[in-house]
């Protein structure tokens, strides 16, 4: 049975934010809310994510980043590596969104969802992480708010388990393997400077404090 909740939420958003979404493809965030019902099986109805299926929270992430990542999944630039267990789940799901216009409206809908705080699930030394974060801040900002011009997403709202997992993937070449994915390739190089899993946990602990 199709839930009416996302549709109603999107209708409200359309009414309140229609002026700001004038350049969105036909259907706008209302269509994005309907299409999002394929995503909410793992990412949750409010985009809160699920540790059970290793799906990160995505609510409130910038639309440009969500759009870009969904396209990367569709193209095989992300989530196509044989060892990327979670990415291989996301890849076929991303392809259920049939057009670039639909990707855009879904991204805008997800971006419009309010981000929620993510509780700590790992133990790490935030003080040590703060020193290591200097490298990260060059792109992601000292406050972890991200920088669109550098294709660096905000990371301050990401859960610690997801940060550690992604650093591991970048280091192992499971993510950021595609040469055309400049930001991913850059991140792959930067992740290589994170010494080990403990250092990644320290970084995640610090990011939690931002």
């Amino acid at each position: 049975m199709v839930s009416a909740r996302p549709t109603l939420a999107a209708l409200a958003l359309t009414l309140t934010a229609s002026a700001g979404c004038a350049d969105l493809p036909e259907g706008g965030v209302a269509r994005g809310a309907v299409l999002y019902q394929n995503c909410d099986q793992c990412h949750g109805k409010a985009g809160e994510g699920s540790t059970l299926v290793q799906a990160p929270p995505i609510a409130g992430l910038p639309g440009w980043y969500i759009e870009e990542q969904v396209l990367h999944f569709q193209w095989g630039w992300r989530g196509a590596h044989p060892d990327d267990v979670e990415g291989l789940k996301m890849r076929p799901m991303s392809r259920t969104i049939k057009s670039d216009a639909d990707v855009k409206v879904v991204a805008e809908y997800v971006s419009s969802l309010p981000a929620a705080a993510t509780p700590a699930t790992l133990t790490g030394d935030a003080e040590k992480g703060k020193a290591g974060f200097a490298t990260c801040s060059a792109c992601h900002g000292a406050d972890g708010a991200g920088n669109e011009a550098m294709k660096a997403p905000p990371i301050k709202q990401l859960p610690d388990w997801y940060i550690v997992r992604q650093i591991g993937k970048f280091k192992a070449g499971i993510r950021g393997y595609q040469a055309e994915d400049a930001a991913g390739a850059t991140m792959k190089g930067i992740a290589g400077t994170v010494a080990d899993d403990a250092a990644a946990r320290d970084l995640a602990a610090y990011i939690q404090t931002l």
């Binding site: 044989p82 267990v85 291989l88 789940k89 890849r91 076929p92 799901m93």
Partner: peptide, 13 residues
């Protein structure tokens, strides 16, 4: 010859 097939949600390796 041998080929190794691994299934996961939702891909074949």
């Amino acid at each position: 010859e041998t080929v190794r097939i691994t299934a996961q949600q939702w891909a074949w390796t």
